[in-house]
Design a protein around this nucleic acid. Structure first.
Length: 416
DNA sequence: TCTGGGGTCCTAGGACCC
DNA sequence: TCTGGGGTCCTAGGACCC
């Protein structure tokens, strides 16, 4: 049996933990650059705020209802997430951290009533962290997802442990709510009269494979109660790593854009080092505002191959900046840039370059010192000169809450 | 004025090999 | 009329997830 534990309105709930005056009030959390609404309290959902909506389109609704608005504070949410996962690991030896707010637990061998066990998990997470979660339990991950959705509408825990309940759950799950059925497939299926998860299971298996590949076929099997997707408890190293951001305002000057590109490249290097990998390719892209109908949309990108795979800040920044110079066109207002590294392999066995003698020892030492200083004194305390100081490209974060759990100055003060 | 930022997997088709 | 029969590798594009 699998349990899917999922934080309710996770980002909003994290904000509420440290600011109880937000309880029972409409709250929304925005995406980077304060662009879209990406987390909503139940009260905000009731007011009609939609997931992913651009916030500027709902200014009025926000003001009329005194909605509390926050920039996203990933430092806080990430730390709360780690703490939540730690608590969950007390309840199962096998935990797959599926996303920042979700985890699958292997409940094989748990004695006694699973519904009660779920309620105990819920209560413990709430006691330890103040975060509300919903828990779905079933014998396949896809069914656990469905159970989780039902749990949130009921008392927080729902168990699918009989054919009768499975049947009922499938008949009451709209096809677009099934894990693995996205917008395109939902549209196609609805047009054919497939409206619920139950309808989907009635389709011919080969027909499903023809039109939705083996992935769709697996989803169907999982809904039927045949487990095809196993628990993945080992964190796999990433095959691509990206750092991309829109600018706070549109930019044209190459030097300012270069600061952003160098900083994104350094961020990629840090992520590589964290998983003990090196990358061979560095892709840089830059584009104008895709939403402005009055200007031509321009998107340019290039992939630079480095002489040797690397994870050092200067190597990646150098490659990324060389790429930027290739694609940059002057006198254009750009909106966003990003760096993506790929062809990732282990840092333990790097393929050397015959014509280059890299002092890798030295580079690694520099990286170690840089990482430890920055861990202690804050991100980018030690940085490359090309990363600049002006931060003109930085994103908007006008409504950021403090980093309550990760920064000494931000610790909550209580008056007694 | 204003619209996020990450990832993964699968398949078809083309280029190439013998 | 009729045009072999295997393979591999790579890429682009499309689907999905949070």
């Amino acid at each position: 049996m699998f349990a899917l534990v999922d934080g309710n309105n996770f980002y909003v709930s994290c904000e509420r933990v440290f600011n109880p005056t937000l309880d029972e009030k409409p709250v929304v959390v925005l995406s980077n650059n304060d662009g879209c609404i990406i987390s909503r309290s139940n009260e905000a959902k009731a007011l009609g705020f939609k997931m992913g909506e651009p916030v500027f389109k709902r200014k009025e609704l926000i003001e009329q209802n005194n909605v509390n608005v926050f920039s996203s504070n990933y430092t806080l949410y990430g730390d709360m997430s780690n703490r939540m996962m730690k608590t969950l690991k007390e309840f199962s030896p096998e935990v797959e951290v599926y996303s920042i707010d979700e985890a699958f637990l292997d409940l094989t061998g748990i004695q006694g009533n699973l519904e009660e066990y779920g309620q105990t998990i819920r209560a413990t997470v709430y006691k330890n962290l103040g975060l509300p979660v919903g828990i779905g339990i079933a014998n396949t991950k896809t069914l656990a997802k469905i159970a989780n959705k039902i749990a949130k509408k009921q008392n927080g825990v729902f168990v699918i442990d009989s054919e009768r309940i499975r049947d009922w759950a499938l008949r009451n799950t709209p096809i677009e709510d099934v894990w693995g059925i996205g917008r395109q497939y939902a549209k196609m299926l609805t047009n054919m009269g497939v409206h619920t998860a139950y309808d989907f299971t009635r389709l011919d298996s080969n027909w499903v494979k023809d039109r939705m590949t083996v992935v769709g076929q697996r989803t169907r099997e999982e809904l039927l109660g045949l487990s095809c997707i196993s628990l993945e408890t080992i964190v796999k190293s990433k095959k691509n790593i990206a750092t991309t951001r829109a600018f706070g305002k549109k930019l044209s000057d190459i030097n300012t854009i270069a600061e952003a590109v160098a900083t994104h490249a350094v961020r990629c290097a840090e992520k590589l080092r964290k998983q003990q990998s090196v990358a061979n390719f560095v892709t840089v892209f830059i584009h104008t505002d895709p939403f402005n109908p009055n200007e031509k949309y321009i998107y340019r990108s290039v992939t630079v191959t480095m002489d040797e795979a690397s994870n050092s800040n200067p190597d990646l920044a150098k490659a990324a900046l060389a790429g930027l110079r290739k694609i940059y066109i002057p006198n254009i207002l750009y909106k966003k840039t990003g760096v993506i590294v790929s062809e990732i392999s282990s840092e333990k066995n790097i393929q050397g370059n015959l014509f280059k003698t890299t002092d890798r020892e030295k580079l690694n030492k520099i990286s170690k010192v840089t990482d430890s200083l920055n861990a202690k004194y804050g991100r980018d305390k030690l940085k490359l000169a090309v990363q600049g100081n002006k931060k003109e490209w930085k994103l908007k974060q006008e409504k950021l809450s403090p980093c309550f759990t990760t920064r000494w100055e931000d610790i909550l003060k209580v008056k007694a």
